[in-house]
Design a protein around this nucleic acid. Structure first.
Lengths: 120, 120
DNA sequence: CAAGAACGATTACATCCGTAATCTCTCAGG
DNA sequence: CCTGAGAGATTACGGATGTAATCGTTCTTG
């Protein structure tokens, strides 16, 4: 499922909480993005058409719920990037970050822990 | 520097080897992509306009060379993704892959090695 | 009941992108 | 010299995207 940048911001709102009415999505986005209401509605419609979200009537409005799971989307996006840039492998990405000093102390700690717990 | 998907394929060719004439880029891409010559030339021009590559006259043709370094581009792209999906941190990405069983044995070995050598 | 407000639906429009075709200029060969 | 081939430059065009405005319809409230 292909989600554009702007659309993904709408999805993030719905992933955090759902179902939500358009108005609520607008409100949630108002701070970060300064989008007009119409803009958000367009994005909701496009997401609907793509099947990334679902709308169910509630009185005179719709409540929107994600269909696409963040989990899956994140995996798709990440794998896409890894394939394009790192031959599809994770370690080279981490190495790249390491070389550029982009690994925080916290990252290192978490990675160590993760690896310890792996494949015991 | 913003490089589109198609443009990045041209860049990859030039990163592998440069400087190259348009014809050579076309040839290099002929196998993977089946693009018309005109398409590749368009992409070269767009990259030129963006300043991602440079062209120097050699007789009646141009030889193209990357200006944007792959190194830098990769870092930008990766950080962009990390920020959008993982709060800008590396460890959560690795954890995500781990949970989805997308860490190969080789990845794990390399990561262990990398971490050992780090911060000794 | 009439008019405006609240919603979703439709339409708009510039830019980017993928993918080319065509135009123009210049050099080489007959 | 003239003409054609080859190279870059210009133009094309449909679909996606960002960003809205406007339309149409249905409650709501005076």
């Amino acid at each position: 499922m292909k989600i554009s940048e702007a659309e993904s911001l709408v999805m993030e709102v719905l992933w955090r909480q759902h179902p939500l009415a358009a108005e609520e999505v607008v409100a949630a986005l108002a701070e970060a993005q300064q989008w007009q209401e119409a803009t958000v509605k367009t994005l909701l419609n496009r997401l609907l058409k793509k099947g990334a979200i679902d709308a169910e009537k509630e009185g005179r409005r719709y409540l929107y719920t994600p269909v696409l799971r963040r989990e899956d989307w994140v995996l798709e996006e990440s794998q896409g990037l890894l394939e394009r840039l790192f031959n599809g492998r994770v370690a080279p990405l981490v190495a790249h970050f390491s070389q550029h000093r982009k690994l925080s102390r916290k990252d290192v700690a978490e990675l160590r822990k993760l690896l310890e717990e792996l494949d015991p």
